[in-house]
Amino acid sequence: MRVVVLCSSPYSETGCAMAARLAQAGRTPVGALTLPAWDRQTLLRKLGQWGLRDCYRFARSKVGPAPANRQQLRNPYLQKMLAHESGAFRNLFQVARHYGFPVTTSPDQNSHGAIDQLKRWSPYIAIFTGGNIVREAALKQCSLGILNSHLALLPDIRGMSSPEWSVLQGVPLGITIHFMDSGIDTGPILLRREFPRPPGCDSFSDLRNRMIAAAIDWMAETVAALEAGTIAPTPQASKRTNGRRDDSQYFVMHDRLKALAKRHLTKIESTTLKNAADHAGVRNG
């Protein structure tokens, strides 16, 4: 199976972990396409998401001298995938060198250069872990399509701040792996699984980190199932309420509502992941 990983930055822990996880499962990517490390949009977005102090800490952990202890990941739940020597992989180039696949940097995943590179790799599928909105021309370069993992159950909660909106709207927490299309989180679904709040998880940043780690595992599982032919995509049910189309699109949540959602989060009964998997709505074709 020829797989390409699309990343928002060579320093994206999610992108690195996805590439490493695939390689560890015996499906080393044929390549990784990443936006530059100092992409202006990504920097602005991260500053907005994390704040200046956390951005500085992250940059120092990635480009400064290697820390003495092993705790150098922003998302500690990715440690098992990124473990390397006495610490962890610090960037995509290290992962690529270790597992033996090429990395190409492009300022835009939809640029001519990026599309030409995708043509050369001729992937069966690509896995999106971050970057630009992927346009039609790039989507067409993968025989099957581009996969995305969305941190909510589709089609109930589309768009941004999805774990927070799930909690606020009383929709079960979950992860959906789906093909990307021209809409926002509207493509056919391959896997849709609930992710009940793990014990001790009382903040959205912790919840999100745990969900990302689970999503990477479930993405690897999905790729394996695609290769084995045991899974098939199902189109999303279209929702229409009050004449609104695409009624389930959500947007970045305001801090006041996030605080409210956090209060609700701690009230949700926690369940172990094992139990969650037992009653999850897995859709394997």
Partner: peptide, 8 residues
């Protein structure tokens, strides 16, 4: 003023 998807 910043205008990216995550901003307000």
């Amino acid at each position: 003023s910043p205008r990216h998807l995550y901003s307000y």
